[in-house]
Design a binder for these strands. Structure first.
Lengths: 235, 235
DNA sequence: GGGATACAATGACATGTATCAAGGCAAAAA
DNA sequence: TTTTTGCCTTGATACATGTCATTGTATCCC
């Protein structure tokens, strides 16, 4: 299933960028003592839509997708998660079941922090809870923007926007142009909110127009300014 | 512009349902002393997308829409606000400009709470900030569900869903079937995320099918179970 | 290696929805 | 009243996009 290995939070390479960077030192020690870190293989599910949350997950290393599954079974990816991010907090805070499924996009190392501890520290540590609010606000802002674009922009623009979003989230490889994640065409489509075939067709167009280069699941962004123009980003 | 009238928070009819129901009594007194309550006419803008926030707004009475304006000028309604709700907190917490415009759907009475006071109380009052997180989580959950539905459901289903959403938010009139708000066809379309003409056409269909009754801007829900079925709600 | 399986790509087609245009109706203004 | 204005409504049309079907192409496993 998953191999535990417990790196100390105090040495976590993301301790300065994650939500816990603002946390009190004592609290960080408590978290470190209680957390359990596990390894997940690519494709493995960390938690399932509909299940009850027992804590939050903090990504030590790897990449995760969070997705809803619609009535017809098609999935909609609602968030991409990277090292240093936490996930599963929404269900925990609103005391409801998970509304999304978390799946590893590559082999990942993920820490689990028990519910009670996380909530009690949130009660005590004002700067941590403030940081939590900042994260929630920012996610909400992104979600509302996505709603507007889904309602108003054609697929072509949304695909271009999605490529830029992936770059922002996961960055580029050493060559400075290849997106640093491998997604299937279907996953890209589920991120854009369109049919797989449409995503494929438009990616081919983008390639023909010299905006991108395709090599299997590798995507190189050749002409970012043109992609930005295609995305029609004035917002 | 707007006529100030300052009802005491301690007697506010929504003090038990709003976010402040969990707030400490001392803090509530502070808020009461600092807040400014104003009256807004229907159609009046409370704050504008792109402006900097100086505080949060708490609805004393009335109904408000929060909307993004897309690139082409078309608006997308992202939230409906009612008495007891607060708005403008997202921009405040993430320390950014407003991403939406707030417009009164009817004559409303709205209190303004200055930024510094709100933030400082949020720092001190753990249960208030916890309540704030609950609200944010819940809004985020709704937004993500909307994203999935926009991406996957046809307009017909989304319109049915929107009618149910309006009922949930603003409730019904005394007759037990008329939606307790007057929205233009354009506003309904901007809530659904479709063209005005499409919304009109589908409303006519719903009427023909006996699900609803239309009388100007009044909408009566005649057959709620059938509307639920049309909305295809299994989620 | 060679079959099997999953994924990618492309074409043909159907259709939901947006867009454009024109007319109707009702409330407000002159 | 008549005019004006703002919405609502309906029809005709075009187009983007989803769906279905087929072939090609890697990748995995026995």
């Amino acid at each position: 299933m998953s191999i535990p290995n417990n790196p100390a939070c105090q040495n976590c390479k993301d301790r300065f960028s994650s939500i816990f960077c603002k946390a009190d030192h004592n609290n960080l020690e408590q978290i470190d003592a209680a957390k359990v870190c596990s390894a997940y293989k690519k494709g493995q599910v960390i938690f399932h839509e509909g299940a009850y949350p027992f804590g939050v997950f903090c990504i030590n290393d790897g990449k995760i997708k969070l997705s809803h599954s619609g009535d017809d079974g098609r999935e909609q990816i609602v968030r991409l998660v990277k090292a240093g991010d936490i996930m599963g907090y929404k269900a925990l805070l609103s005391n409801e079941r998970y509304t999304a499924t978390a799946t590893a996009l590559e082999d990942s190392s993920i820490c689990f922090i028990p519910k009670d501890l996380f909530l009690s520290i949130l009660q005590k540590d004002a700067s941590l809870s403030f940081e939590m609010m900042r994260i929630l606000s920012s996610e909400l802002r992104k979600a509302e923007l996505k709603i507007t674009h889904l309602a108003q922009k054609p697929v072509r623009e949304r695909l271009a926007e999605t490529l830029l979003f992936i770059r922002e989230t996961y960055g580029l490889e050493e060559d400075g142009s290849t997106l640093n994640v491998r997604l299937s065409r279907e996953e890209i489509a589920n991120l854009v909110g369109t049919a797989t075939e449409s995503a494929i067709r438009l990616l081919s167009e983008f390639k023909k127009d010299g905006m991108i280069e395709l090599d299997g699941k590798k995507i190189r962004l050749l002409d970012v300014p043109e992609i930005i123009r295609t995305a029609n980003l004035h917002d």
